[in-house]
Design a protein around this nucleic acid. Structure first.
Length: 165
DNA sequence: CTTACGATTCCC
DNA sequence: GGAATCGTAAGG
């Protein structure tokens, strides 16, 4: 992210983090994917344009995904962890005093930390919305791949990506 | 309408 | 290891 951009976001009181962990959910033949059983009201945006937010609820929590393929192809990436960069005091407040190491180290925790909920369902993450994802510069050697976690099907597929720090 | 079930988190 | 807790989806 451009340094000036970060400063601008700080000035506007926004919270900023670096994505450190993601998981891929495939468009076809992925029994762990929400879109596996077809298009429903809940998974509607997965079948829409890429770059938009697929937010869903599990228990009492929210999780954020990015739609990543062409319209009609419901492939997506679950954002599993974020390292807070700016607006950390606000994030601490939202997270209710948990240790800094636990501020956004889970898919639902990061949504609480960054105040992401169903109002962001379908939002364009590449534009001027309230949630924006900026391009990073990652070398393949910085990424560690492991099986996805927290699911009960296709548990051995190596689709979890961790930023080696 | 009823039932089943979580792409989780937090506590014991 | 287990409970919390509620929207979604599917079936009657």
């Amino acid at each position: 992210m451009a340094p000036g951009l970060l400063g601008a976001m700080l000035a506007h009181g926004r919270t900023v983090g670096r994505i450190t962990e993601t998981e891929a959910y495939l468009a076809a033949d992925d029994p762990a994917a929400h879109a596996y059983r077809g298009r429903t009201k809940r998974t509607e945006v997965l079948f829409g344009r890429p770059g938009h937010a697929y937010v869903y609820r599990t228990r009492q929590h929210h999780c954020l995904n990015v739609v990543v393929q062409q319209e009609g192809v419901p492939g997506c990436v679950l954002v599993r962890a974020v390292e807070p960069i700016a607006g950390v005091d606000l994030i601490r407040c939202r997270r209710g005093g948990v240790p800094d190491s636990r501020l956004a180290d889970g898919p639902a925790k990061l949504c609480q930390a960054l105040a992401i909920d169903m109002q962001h369902y379908g939002e364009d993450l590449c534009g001027e919305g309230t949630v924006t994802i900026f391009a990073g510069e990652r070398k393949p050697s910085e990424i560690v791949t492991t099986p996805r976690i927290g699911i009960s099907r296709a548990t051995d597929w190596p689709l979890r990506y961790l930023l080696a720090t």
